[in-house]
């Protein structure tokens, strides 16, 4: 029999391979996505337009297609990554970046900006307000769990309560708002990449790229949490601190991307599961890989959404669910029966 050590290393090598292959795949998908769109710009032309700084082709590629592609990848990565962190620290397979009421917080923020600053609100005001309220909800949860103890049950239940509170507040404002405002609000909740420019990308990239390395460094501790709080403590993990760090950082990532794009819900729940089914539960590999899978799914969804009925664009949040759900269910059925 082959040495176990070698076997284990082989397995780890294969996981690393998966990540590298997926990076390449994502690059390839981006190139394909770059050549698809309402205007008939083929693969070669769009690729050439990347480097040729004149003409309409250049403008289409740099102003319309590339920002969407990069933002799609960023959103997917951020939500996939944050989802994995939330599932690990809450030890709950149903946890997602929205479990702690973060999405409804962000939604409420957007609604406030749209309704109260009617007429003169800018995209940044909406995004800023969404970002702020997304963090408000996660800090509310942290406050409650500090008083009551950082158990997963307290956090999840408090999160659900907060979610209902913010949803109700949003509904109230929508009820009071005008037709145009309600239309804008509904559109925000669909989740869309249409209004994204380079500045938004830069901001979102900062919000995604800064917390990620810190969280990846904590992957061992995240692994240990799945062995139970008590075992983790006995193995030297400061469980409360990990939980708070994890929630703060993952909330920052979530808020940082959804404040620009609206609610793209499903991906943060599903990307971690898809990835876990493929490469297992070791967070050192799982975290980056879920980010990549999330990025790939959102990019695919957005590309399909803008080419299917082109020039009509279907909001990415909707297509993500249409593509993600069947794929996820397929994996779920195919995988051995006792996944949990």
């Amino acid at each position: 029999m082959q040495d176990i050590c070698e076997q284990y290393k082989g397995l780890a090598g294969r996981k690393l391979c998966f990540i590298i292959v997926f990076v390449a795949l994502l690059l390839g998908m981006s190139l394909v996505a770059l050549s698809l769109g309402a205007s008939s710009l083929g693969f070669r032309e769009s690729f050439a337009a990347l480097f040729d700084d004149s003409g309409t082709a250049h403008a289409i590629v740099w102003k319309l297609r590339l920002p969407r592609i990069i933002m799609a990848i960023l959103v997917g990565c951020g939500l996939g990554f944050a989802g994995t962190v939330f599932q690990a620290i809450l030890k709950n397979p149903l946890a997602s970046p929205y479990t702690l009421g973060i999405a409804s917080g962000a939604g409420f923020g957007a609604v406030i900006a749209i309704v109260f600053c009617a007429g003169f609100h800018t995209q940044y005001l909406v995004a800023g307000s969404a970002f702020f309220f997304a963090l408000v909800s996660s800090f509310l949860i942290l406050g409650i769990s500090r008083l009551k103890g950082c158990t997963t049950e307290t956090m999840i239940l408090a999160g659900i309560a907060i979610m209902f509170l913010f949803s109700a507040l949003s509904s109230l404002l929508q009820y009071m708002g005008t037709m145009e405002q309600v239309h804008e609000i509904v559109f925000w909740f669909f989740g869309s990449l249409s209004k994204v420019g380079w500045k938004e990308i830069a901001l979102a990239a900062v919000m995604v790229c800064l917390p990620c390395p810190i969280l990846i460094r904590l992957s061992w501790d995240l692994n240990l949490l799945s062995a139970g709080d008590e075992s983790a403590k006995a193995l030297g993990v400061n469980v409360e601190r990990i939980r708070i760090t994890g929630i703060v950082l993952a909330s920052l990532i979530t808020a940082g991307v959804i404040c620009f794009t609206g609610v793209i819900g499903f991906i943060g729940l599903v990307a971690p599961h898809i990835t876990r089914m493929i490469i297992g539960g070791d967070h050192r590999f799982l975290l980056p890989a879920s980010g990549l899978v999330g990025g790939a799914v959102v990019l695919t969804a957005d590309t399909v959404g803008r080419t299917l009925w082109s020039p009509q664009v279907i909001p990415v949040g909707i297509v993500t669910s249409f593509i993600g759900v069947p794929f996820f269910l397929y994996l779920l059925m195919k995988k051995r029966k006792e996944y949990w």
Binding site: I4, Y8, N92, A234, W340
Partner: peptide
């Protein structure tokens, strides 16, 4: 502990490797 809850799948090797965490 008396028993260890495992919410997410984990390989036996990784479970033992956790002992090296300190």
């Amino acid at each position: 502990p008396q028993s260890s809850p495992s919410k997410f799948p984990i390989a036996v090797f990784d479970a033992v490797l956790m002992g090296r965490r300190p």
